[in-house]
């Protein structure tokens, strides 16, 4: 098993959170919260620590893998998104995601790999150093954000399970826990829970594919898919499955949630593509958020969300209008 290990000393000193900032915010912590933080303290700074929402993470900036476009403010990125497990309104995830228990968190790894099993999340994160990658996030609904994700390259995370040559696809599943996720309790939902997503193995192994455990330097808030979510920046946002509890390597192409609901609208690939129209939204342009009321922040949508140099070769020879 080869896991790329970046030496800890390669981290520039400028990346370290100033001690005063760290101590200051700790002063606000009381009671049980302080106890939890104390438990997390030995892990502070060390990659692989148990993610506690809002906890500062140590990471290495990856300018080569980051856009220099202006970041969407933290407040907007964490209060306005789709996470139907908590409701269909964009404000629902933040409103209701506190019911989600992210620790302890178990990830089941199965299928065509030699190291399958049930893992505690911190154990599969431990061997890796965190990176920060600032990616564009393009929703199929024609809005977009720029988010600094913290996490590990998906390839590094998956390689440790030693997928066999028969693994041609990787399948992911979100937690199914109606008690914690009120959207899953709705009797009128057309989604057959749990939420499912998948990638072709070469897509998953592409250097851009990322498994995020944080954003803006902190661990993922529940509403953004805590404690661990996928980030595939050249595909529409719904491919980037949240709160993952299952990873399965398989030989056949998995059926994904949106494909199951409306195959004419959502394909397996779901690559960002202004040339392929969606029955609900024109994909030629996008509103970069935050957008104003009197000056809508329109932007032309780029093919592969602007990541064509890194990923276009994955689809050479494929008719992207057919395999949308």
């Amino acid at each position: 098993m080869i896991i790329k290990k970046r030496p800890a000393w390669s981290l520039p000193h400028s990346q370290v959170t100033p001690e005063s900032v760290f101590l200051n915010r700790r002063r606000f912590m009381t009671g049980a919260l302080a106890a939890t933080a104390a438990l997390a303290l030995p892990g502070y700074g060390a990659a692989g620590s148990l993610p506690v929402p809002g906890e500062m993470l140590k990471y290495k900036k990856m300018p080569d893998w980051s856009t220099d476009e202006g970041l969407t403010p933290y407040e907007d990125a964490t209060s306005y998104n789709n996470f139907y497990e908590f409701g269909t309104d964009k404000g629902d995830p933040k409103r209701y995601a506190s019911a989600l228990k992210t620790a302890p968190w178990t990830v089941t790894v199965e299928g065509e790999c030699s190291k399958g099993g049930e893992y505690a999340l911190e154990d599969i994160l431990k061997p890796h150093d965190y990176q920060e990658r600032i990616y564009r996030l393009r929703c199929v609904e024609a809005w977009s954000m720029v988010v600094p994700w913290i996490g590990v390259p998906l390839a590094d995370l998956l390689t440790q399970f030693e997928p066999t040559p028969r693994a041609r696809y990787v399948y992911f599943e979100t937690l199914f826990e109606p008690e914690q996720m009120r959207g899953q309790r709705s009797a009128f939902s057309t989604i057959d829970w749990p939420y499912r997503e998948g990638l072709r193995m070469d897509e998953a192994m592409n250097e851009l594919s990322f498994m995020a455990v944080g954003l803006y330097g902190k661990t993922l808030p529940n509403q953004n898919g805590g404690p661990m979510r996928l980030v595939v920046p050249w595909k529409y946002g719904f491919k980037s499955i949240k709160s993952i509890v299952k990873i399965r390597f398989q030989e056949t192409r998995p059926k994904t949630t949106w494909e199951l609901i409306a195959p004419s609208e959502y394909g397996f690939y779901a690559n960002v593509n202004p040339e392929v129209d969606h029955p609900r939204w024109s994909q030629k342009r996008e509103r970069r958020l935050p957008s104003g009321l009197f000056s809508v922040n329109w932007m032309d949508t780029q093919k592969f969300n602007g990541y064509g140099d890194q990923v276009a070769q994955l689809y050479r020879g494929m008719d992207l209008k057919r395999f949308f």
Binding site: P73, S79, S291
Partner: peptide, 15 residues
């Protein structure tokens, strides 16, 4: 909501 900027990051959609 408009005057108090409570429409969120995508106000056009909300309106």
């Amino acid at each position: 909501d408009m005057l108090y900027s409570r429409l969120g990051p995508d106000p056009g959609e909300v309106v």
